[in-house]
Design a protein around this nucleic acid. Structure first.
Lengths: 154, 154
DNA sequence: CGTGAAAGGGTTCACTC
DNA sequence: GAGTGAACCCTTTCACG
């Protein structure tokens, strides 16, 4: 698993923003022949640098208009407690992001809901039902300022 | 902008997980001819339901090993204050996500850094330099449990 | 590691129902 | 709205530099 060179970086940058660009166009963009570009792309995919390609959908168009940030504390940090919590949280389709955190709260979640009523249902049926939870704190996004798929590269 | 029907939903679901699938394979998957599928995809893209296609890169492979969640409070909620803050935060390439929030803090950010030293630099040069900030609270992700590109669809 | 050519497959029309 | 066929373009692989 070698370090990506300048051309690899150019390929990755392009694919970050235009994930469905054709190999031929990508090759031209980064100054390679189509075959050379195809081979490099193959290597980048197989090495795990590229984890996948995804269409980003408009939450609004799909009638998901609310984003909640949920802070959660558990009753302890035992391995079994965490494992059980994590297995349960993965089952909730509305949870977009979940991190185990240092600091005041154990987990931070980003949750998508259609509206306040939908969030109430998710909170009742999913979040409150998660095992070992002792504190849940929801706050709501008023506006999305930034949502980048990846970190910018130099 | 008509409501997506069952076939549109199938197209969107597939592209969420396989953003680089060929139109021909997509058509077969959803039970359409290639031309019909291509036409629908065109409509979905132009209507804004599909906001873009992105390669998801391994932060680890690119040596971004740290994720920080940053809570920020401003000195007021005047429109000018928010606008100036948001213009400044958009300039920081390490900020992956930024929401204007209800509740205790005004903004929540997700920030990527290579390591603790890198985060110290970002905090000093970017976050502390943001205008109108009166409180910054960083916590760090110990582990990523979930990172879905989109909300699950029925 | 890059090139060019060739075969196979994909995309996009106009046209039709 | 959906399918068909044909022209054109793209992808992939191979031998070679």
């Amino acid at each position: 698993m070698h370090e990506p060179d300048t051309i690899d970086i150019a390929i990755l940058k392009t694919l970050q923003n235009e994930g469905r660009i054709s190999n031929a166009a990508l090759a031209e963009r980064v100054g390679l022949s189509a075959s050379a570009c195809s081979r490099r792309l193959d290597i980048l995919e197989k090495s795990g640098v590229i984890k996948g390609y995804h269409a980003r959908l408009s939450h609004k168009a799909l009638n998901y208009r609310m984003i909640a940030i949920v802070h959660i504390s558990l009753s302890g940090q035992f391995a079994k407690t965490l494992t059980e919590f994590e297995a349960a949280v993965k089952r909730c389709p509305n949870v977009l992001v979940c991190y185990l955190m240092s600091g005041e709260y154990d987990y931070i979640l980003r949750v998508a809901a259609r509206d306040l009523e939908d969030y109430e249902r998710i909170h009742r049926d999913w979040l409150s039902a998660l095992p070992h939870v002792v504190k849940i704190n929801s706050s709501f996004a008023l506006r999305e300022i930034i949502d980048r798929p990846n970190v910018g590269m130099g």
